[in-house]
Design a binder for these strands. Structure first.
Lengths: 207, 207
DNA sequence: GCCAACATACCGACTGGTTGGTATGTTTCG
DNA sequence: CGAAACATACCAACCAGTCGGTATGTTGGC
């Protein structure tokens, strides 16, 4: 166990991986670069990870933990109405679109694009991260369905995944356009969709 | 000018780039690999392209041309009601989700994720491709707005881009899950959103 | 009609730097 | 001490890009 308080090489490498890989992509990121960004040597890298791909899997799991803690502590869980919790989640995601593009985009969305076919272990880790995060929304979505007596022809799970798809697509727009504006617009459309699904009357526009 | 009928090295390299890069990602794709897939030599590669990045830009433009022709010739332009044309586009995109994941995912969405920060020229080319394609939907969306006398607080352009975001996000889901099912569900949600936006009455579910 | 001059398309061996990974110390801590 | 946590030195494979050369037109002057 490393000394508490001071970060060990493994943690520094994982933290460095989050920023470097989100900036340059996975394949273009070299082990030396990762070591330099983390302030450790190559020996430390291969002491903690068997290979670069092995670090990618660990980084995806680390990402799941970091984001899991962030969303678990976020205030959107507070409202009594489950729909407000779901909409609060969307608002929370939208509010995260600040600063550099690399700062708010998704590690696993980036990595799975490059490695889905060539490195199955990375694909599995990214799927775990995305699907696991989506699953945290399912209960609130289902409660919103039940509270309004709806019986839709879609599932809470598919809507939760769709929300992730919109976010991932918004990140691609942000990368292509070099800014968050289009991504924010897309998240606004997602919010509007949820309003229309669950509050068709109130959200109808006047003639 | 190359002999008509026989493909020249440049075209073969661009065609090979579409499949290889979509399968392995841009950075992980080597020039030698591209040459092997195209059946040409390295000399031919650097005769036609100054660098690997130069080919990426040309491949993005080639992608725009190929997909532009595909969508221009598609039957979703036929309906008289502009909303039906927009919905027809979504149905057409959904119907394209067949075969291998690499076969239906997007070249420029893949490339921009890796190169948005490091190679500006590639980012511009990918933005041109995505935004140019989205622009082909704007007129129909605007006509659908006008035909129903709506005055929404969103623009036709933002909705067209949102549709691209959903598609790009759906591709990421497909890559993470190793199949098209989740992507198809997401596109279904996009279609439902459009129905709710433009036909709130008819698409209301019965109590 | 003919040939020199030039242009385009392509070939493939070669290079110099880079990359993931290894082998072998050294330090730190219980 | 002994093992885990690093550090240093090194390597073989690989990779983008180069370069001299060939084959096949194309153009223009006489």
């Amino acid at each position: 166990m490393p000394r508490a308080g001071r970060k060990d090489a493994r943690s520094k490498l994982l933290d460095a991986a989050l920023t470097v890989i989100r900036t340059k992509g996975y394949s273009a990121t070299t082990v030396d670069e990762l070591c330099a960004a983390a302030g450790v040597t190559k020996g430390a890298f291969f002491h903690h990870f068997r290979s670069k791909d092995d670090l990618a899997v660990a980084a995806a799991d680390h990402w799941s933990q970091m984001t899991g803690a962030l969303f678990a502590a976020a205030p959107y869980h507070d409202p009594a109405d489950p729909l407000d919790r779901v909409l609060g989640y969307v608002d929370f995601r939208r509010a995260l679109l600040k600063g550099d593009v690399a700062g708010f985009t998704c590690l696993v969305g980036t990595m799975v694009q490059e490695a889905y076919e060539t490195v199955p272990a990375i694909r599995y880790a990214c799927d775990r991260s995305i699907s696991g995060h989506a699953a945290t929304l399912e209960a609130d979505i289902q409660a919103a369905i039940d509270s309004r007596g709806l019986s839709p022809d879609w599932t809470a799970q598919s809507l939760a995944l769709h929300m992730q798809a919109v976010l991932q697509g918004a990140f691609i727009l942000a990368k292509a356009k070099g800014g968050a504006a289009a991504a924010a617009d897309s998240i606004d459309h997602l919010r509007r969709y949820l309003e229309l699904l669950f509050r068709p009357d109130e959200s109808r526009q006047p003639d």
